[in-house]
């Protein structure tokens, strides 16, 4: 039956298209970016758009990062954190929160549910849309890690991880890796279109931009 349906659907499509004119290559007259190619401008825009969608945004240097991470965890009362493989150990050198490394034995969904926070790096950030992209690379971990705990602290390297626009982001991302694009904490507008932050994903998103 499976084979039949495949042949049937494809046959119907070919039949339906008998009269269809050949289509030209789509015109792409839209812009590659809506922002000037200027690092400072792009960083400010990222900051502004992330904050506009209720992420907490911080800027720091590599040196001060561990202290800031510790402070943020503290501020949210996070006593346990999930740690993805490949996260620089220095980033967690000043926190006293208990660390669950998601390495050889993976944390179960229930264990993740009782974990307060997760600290990750990212693959990319997109300024125009206020988006961070995770692709499971080093320091990011599998998707469940950044989904179940209630606080997500994401570290973005200003030097080489920020692009201006969506068209600039896609060529730098590998579609074979599972990706999560995050623009602010989870939200719903299902009740009379009032925006409420925090339904199923982490209710708090802190983005730390590390500058030179």
């Amino acid at each position: 039956m499976k084979q039949n349906s495949r042949a049937r659907v494809l046959g119907r499509i070919r039949q339906a298209l008998l009269d269809a004119p050949p289509s030209p290559e789509p015109a792409r007259d839209y812009l590659t970016a809506h922002t000037a190619d200027d690092e400072a401008v792009i960083l400010d825009l990222l900051h502004e758009n992330l904050a506009d969608y209720r992420a907490n945004v911080h800027r720091t240097t590599e040196t001060d990062l561990p202290a800031l991470v510790a402070k943020l965890l503290d501020r949210h009362g996070a006593q346990t954190i999930a740690v993805p493989p490949g996260l620089p150990i220095a980033w967690l050198s000043e926190t006293t929160a208990r660390q669950h490394h998601d390495a050889d034995s993976l944390l179960t969904p229930h264990e993740l549910d009782t974990t307060h926070a997760v600290v990750t790096s990212c693959a990319l950030a997109i300024a125009e849309t206020g988006t961070i992209v995770l692709d499971g690379g080093p320091g990011q971990g599998r998707r469940a890690l950044t989904l179940v705990p209630d606080l997500h602290i994401c570290v973005v390297r200003a030097k080489d991880q920020v692009v201006g626009s969506v068209p600039q982001a896609l060529p730098r991302l590998d579609p074979t890796r599972p990706q999560t694009w995050i623009s602010g904490p989870s939200a719903t507008s299902d009740i009379e279109l009032d925006r409420v932050e925090g339904v199923h994903g982490p209710r708090r998103l802190d983005v730390v931009i590390v500058t030179r």
Partner: peptide, 30 residues
């Protein structure tokens, strides 16, 4: 194109909070 036009047309956001992409299955993830 569509990740620019869809969120703005539907929820009027620059980007919706979450977009997930996946290709087949990935060992140890999902």
């Amino acid at each position: 194109v569509f990740l620019q036009t869809l969120p703005r047309s539907s929820t009027a956001e620059r980007m919706n909070p979450y977009t997930s992409t996946w290709t087949g299955t990935t060992d140890g993830d999902g």
